[in-house]
Design a protein around this nucleic acid. Structure first.
Lengths: 165, 165
DNA sequence: AATGTGACTTGCATTCTGCAAGTCACATTT
DNA sequence: AAATGTGACTTGCAGAATGCAAGTCACATT
């Protein structure tokens, strides 16, 4: 029923304000899935690799919508279905998501192939431009594969990335 | 006694792994304070503008140390005092902190002056280089002021920025 | 010796999470 | 058109995390 206003802002610091909305285990994961995996329905998030509980998912979608980071709109062809989309404010989080991805790949044992991520780090601006373009075009094809259950980081890649403009 | 291992990794996704350590209201704030405000003691964090509870602070410092993001070392001149420092892994979070700052300044009502932050966004690489140099030199002088209780940023954003395709 | 400080712990009430199990409006099948 | 299926949520409840106040305890200062 709420999540709406968030009246108790503790500090004017921009980092602090960001964390009031994004500072939890799930919000940025949802945003990442919308951004790079082109998720848009409740079901897709629920069945994703991270196994988020449905009550938490509903709550986070609601809060993200209240924060103006995503919007929810009923599907035209199936009225049961709700399509979630990133707003411009939401897609502007792409740099944050990309940086987190780069950081973890460099410093932790992840399922993402090093070489691919380093290439993205090197072409940062181009990658961000592409993410934004895909968002504007509502491209339904995932930009990156899952990386969720990959054994890890041993240069395994396999042409997952679609190249070119 | 706790906070240490974090054994239940839920996913190999780098963003997910990052959020296992950083996905809460406080961790990145502590890191930000070390990065741009040159904080290094418990007392400084405790008395900072965000008013973190001391048990939470102790817990987060412990977890960040366990994650290799910071190190704690006893002060030479006063054995009661513990000095916390960012590791290289920690200072590598600078891009994330900077992006969060930029994002919130553009999209939320913050205490940070727009012009300053936009200038930092434009000179991203230089700013990051400077942050890193300051870290290496252990510069004790804050890089930025607090922004915590500033009224500021009226007239919000309004299409100041727009990077196109 | 007495008092002060810095860095934490402890207790406890409040809030948030995570699972399982509904509910309910549509959609599809028979 | 009745029965069954689906998608998007709610509800209940136990257990974990948070927030505040009040210690503790090893140094340091007076």
């Amino acid at each position: 029923m709420k999540g709406a206003s968030k009246s108790k802002q503790r500090s004017g610091c921009p980092v602090s304000i960001s964390l009031e909305t994004l500072g939890d285990r799930w919000s940025l994961l949802i945003i990442r899935d919308m951004m790079v995996r082109a998720f848009r329905t409740f079901k897709q998030f629920r069945d994703s690799d991270e196994k988020i509980a449905t009550n938490i998912l509903a709550d986070r979608l609601q809060k993200l919508a209240a924060a103006g980071i995503i919007v929810a709109e009923a599907d035209e062809t199936d009225r049961r279905r709700v399509n979630y989309r990133l707003t411009e404010k939401g897609i502007d989080l792409a740099p944050v998501v990309l940086d987190l991805m780069i950081w973890a790949t460099r410093h932790e044992q992840t399922g993402a192939p090093n070489a691919v991520v380093e290439k993205m780090a090197k072409n940062r601006e181009k990658v961000l431009a592409k993410v934004r373009r895909r968002w504007r075009d509502r491209d339904p094809i995932p930009f990156l594969p899952s990386f969720a259950n990959v054994g890890g980081n041993r240069g395994s890649v396999r042409g997952q990335i679609r190249r070119g403009t």
